[in-house]
Every structure is written in structure tokens, then in C-alpha cells.
Amino acid sequence: MTTLSLLTTRTWSRLPRRHVPVLATLVLLLVLYGVGVSQYRAFSNIQVIFNVFIDNGFLLVVAVGMTFVILTGGIDLSVGSVVAMTAMVSAFLLREGLPAALVLVIALLIGPTLGFLMGCVIHFFDIQPFIVTLAGMFFARGMCTFISGSSIPITDGFWTRMSQERIGNPSGNFVSISVLIAFAVVAVAAYTLAYTRLGRNVYAIGGNPQSALLMGLPVGRTRIAVYTISGLCAAIGGILLSFYTLSGAPLIAVGMELDVIAAVVIGGTVLTGGSGYVFGTVLGVLVLGVIQTLITFDGSLNSWWTKIVIGGLLFAFILLQRLIGIRYK
């Protein structure tokens, strides 16, 4: 009988096209690093890279959560405000004298709860994620100023220890505890996306929500889950930020959601969903961090250059995704 005459439309493409963006980011990162090393002697010190992680650990965690959301084709604009709110609530409760462990639990519950609620509204009322999370963003930011109009310092012992603890060689190269936490989050997220049903459903929904529904996948549940996850990551990010700054301030992390989205997209996740990896997001965050470091090293450049460069990169990467037509529907 007709053994189907091997329908090899794609014998030539040994390298799956969906890997191209991540590889492009990797190349970009190496180029940036190369530029740094060739320009500034101090750049080759490994501590420079460690510092990128130390300074951006919280951003990385939040970006991981955002990756889930964007993979489903959604967006979460509330993360910056949730980060601030979490830091704020922690600082406030600690000042009120609650034990650190309890504060941690409460702070870590707020983000996911808000995320869960937003997910429910998005799913059950079929409202654009953009709108719902915008509302969430205003709500969380409002809560920050409601708690306190000015910044609250943190003096709690646990917090200061987490802030100052250096892992590695205390006099040589080191990372902070936050970096380890961020790596743990990355590992758990990568595993979830690659090896659990929830993770695979996330990709399916991003590919084609209508089909996913007809294939009998729990579309609603998964949607709600990704916003909850994003909320949880934002909460963890908020805690890490409060370790880093040892305070809670109502106007911290304003506009951070945009950096996060930029990192995810530069990391190769397609904004319309269905394609991307957590590993790419790690690279995306590193790219942002290295650019920042380069501009700091230069000293003469205004920090706004960071934004300009990121804008250009974002544009280039979206074009790249378009060109390789990663999205065949």
C-alpha cells in the first residue's frame, strides 16, 4: 500500500526555527560581553557577571512568571506594582513587630491571590488581560501609598542577614542569597514548563486557544494558573527586592513591568504566545543587565542610554521573530 511518501517538507531545517531567537540572544550576549572585556580590563572579572545576577535577581524571578503569561498569549502589567506592594507590606508588618516568618507567608500570599483573581476575571468575563492587569497595577500601586506615603526602612534581623550574607569566597567572588533563590525559581519553572501537564497546556493555549479547548484541555484552569504563578513570582521578586534595598517604598519598581516584558521578548518568547523558553528569559535578563553594566562602566553615558538600547533591541527581536515566521497558524 502507499506508505506515505515521506512528507519531508522540512528535511533541510535540522535546526528547529523555534530555537533561532534564543540562539540569537545568546550570540548577542556573548558579543556584548566581548565588547565589555575588550574595552574595560575590569570587565573580565567574573564578579561582574555575579553582580549582574545580584542586581537583577528579583527582575529575573518576575520575568520567569511573565514568561508563563506571555506563553499563553497574555500579558501581566501588574507585576511592578505587586513587587512594590509586597515589599511595602513586608516593611510595614515588620515595623509593626510581626515575626519574620509570618510576614514572609503573608507577603507571599498577596501576589498570587491578586493574580488568581485577575486570572478569574480574564477567564470568566472574557476581558482582555491588558485591561484587567492594568486595573490590577493601579490597585496594587494604590495599596502601596495607602499603607504609607513614604518609604519604610527594614531593620529585622532575618532581612538584614539575607541582605548581607555572601555566598562563595567572602573576600573574593560571591553571590547573594537572592541569586540562589532566583536560580531555584528558574529551575522549578523550567521543569514545570517542560515536564508537567500544566506547562504543556500553557504552550498549547498559546498556540491556539480554540483548538486547545476542542482537544479537551483545561483552558480556563490553565489561564488562571499562569496569572497566579506570575503573581507568586512577583511576590517572590518583591521579597528579594526588599532584601536588596532593606526597605519598602511606595514608588519603587515603577515601570518595572516594561523591563520585564522586554527581557522576556528579547529572550525569544513570542508575544503572541506558544513559543519560548525560561532559559531564553534568563538570557534576556542578562542582556539587560550587561547593557546596564556597560553603560555604568563607561561613566560618561547617561543611564537613559540603557532605555534607548533596550528599545532598539526589542524592536530588532520582534522583527527577527517576524522574519523567521515563528508563528505559523
Binding site: 501537564r197 504543556r200 498549547a204 498559546g206 491556539n208 486547545a212
Partner: peptide, 25 residues
């Protein structure tokens, strides 16, 4: 045809009831 073109052929067949061990696909 209601499948997800962004996933692999194998996944399209099995998604939602993948063979698993301890929850891992």
C-alpha cells in the same frame, strides 16, 4: 483540524494524557 501547530506531532497526539512518571511527562 483543531490541533496546535506550534507543538510537536507527538505532543498533539498525547497532550492532556501524556505518559507520566511521578507527574513528569
Amino acid at each position: 483540524v483543531n490541533l496546535c501547530t506550534n507543538l510537536s506531532v507527538a505532543e498533539n497526539i498525547f497532550i492532556g494524557r501524556e505518559p507520566r512518571r511521578l507527574g513528569a511527562v
